[in-house]
Write a protein that binds this DNA or RNA. Structure first.
Lengths: 212, 212
DNA sequence: TGTACATCAGTGAACGCGCGTTCACTGATGTAC
DNA sequence: TGTACATCAGTGAACGCGCGTTCACTGATGTAC
């Protein structure tokens, strides 16, 4: 993919290094992101990396950002193919559920990326997880839609983003890496459904609206 | 604490090594658990560790188990001092909330231990997190109590343990390590309360019982 | 159009580090007679 | 009660490893005149 016959002035070394590290992270998680390995993969000397990154953490942060936007992409594409029925309230709940499922499924199908997205140093006060276009922003939009359609009473809106995020993030980490990692796929599905059901039940309490 | 004048036949080397590693894990998390460092802390040669542990992972697992039981202890002691009012239903919900808060507070006050408890290799199919006396078992008992007092309809019991666990575990990891790590303490408290409220709301949906 | 030169993006060798693990060993302990 | 000996729990030196990072360097590129 990259021009091999160009020992000097590689041209896309930064991107190439991030891509290489991304592949490693995918297989083996954030700890496997190693400067020397990335330069090796791109057939470049170790010190070349320092033209593009101050240190290893900067490379890892770049990789983590890519992982996070992969997650956002998966959620968005799942939302794009979500069924939009005639009932806007049911549709809005369905979209929230779909996003939650997508989040957990990403974690399970790409554990390395998922772990990297959240396991990075990322010093800045506004981590990529909550930046514009992030999964968290997507979630907020879905909740706003619920309020707009009247599905969610405005007074239940504050904090709803954390309730939803915590639930899917929690079950994802427990299933991927954690004590539930040995639960077979069928059981996983049921558990995830139950967790999402309870989030929706909590948000819609007193409305009697959605339950399936 | 350990007998220093005993180069040979230390007597409690295994325990001493675990204690040393536990102190490291407390400060710097699971990755900081290092065999050589532990032996250094106990003033013993590196190879001595291999009398007691097959390899580094075995030491780390021992440490992780201790971390997990610290978590269980904190929850249990919090439950012990939970107010037991005259209303058994309210009491049962209050205990569930208290356990949830304790879980998150442990994560925040002992991030190293929390991370170690859940970040270990722990190959076995029944990880210490779900073993007898574990936080997970505690949770199951609390939920059974809710059913026993009539607070929770039996048909909502299955899966409730995952809904509750996912929520508190998720918010804990997001706040401790994750993208919410820069939220100030006051905001954290509000977020945690909201998350727990939503779990309870979800479980008690259709009952109109608890909301505070 | 051709040449001098600054800049840029690489090279490659070296640094110090600490790790997990192995090995042949040895000093202390306790048991059998 | 005293001695021989097996066992047990340590020692200490060494192994190979790969890492992040620095340094003086050099080849290619593009710009000014």
């Amino acid at each position: 993919v990259y021009d091999v016959n160009m020992p000097y002035h590689h041209g896309h070394l930064r991107e190439a290094l991030v891509d290489a590290a991304l592949a490693t992270a995918r297989r083996d998680g954030p700890d496997a992101v190693v400067l020397r390995a990335a330069t090796r993969a791109v057939a470049v000397s170790p010190s070349a990396a320092y033209r593009h990154f101050a240190d290893r953490d900067e490379l890892l942060s770049a990789v983590a950002q890519r992982c996070m936007s992969h997650l956002a992409d998966v959620i968005e594409s799942r939302l794009a193919e979500a069924p939009g029925g005639s009932d806007p309230v049911a549709t809005a709940w369905g979209r929230l559920r779909a996003a939650g499922r997508a989040y957990v499924e990403f974690a399970l199908s790409e554990p390395g990326w998922f772990g990297t997205a959240f396991g990075a140093p990322a010093g800045p006060p506004v981590p990529s997880a909550v930046a514009p276009g992030s999964p968290f922003q997507l979630l907020n939009e879905l909740l706003d839609d619920l309020v707009a359609t009247g599905a969610l009473p405005p007074e239940k809106r504050p904090g709803a983003e954390y309730a939803a995020w915590a639930a899917v993030h929690g079950i994802a980490t427990l299933l991927v890496d954690g004590p539930l990692r040995h639960v077979p796929p069928a059981g996983r599905d049921q558990i995830v459904t139950g967790v999402i059901d309870n989030v929706v039940a909590g948000l819609s309490k007193g409305l009697g609206v959605p339950d399936g």
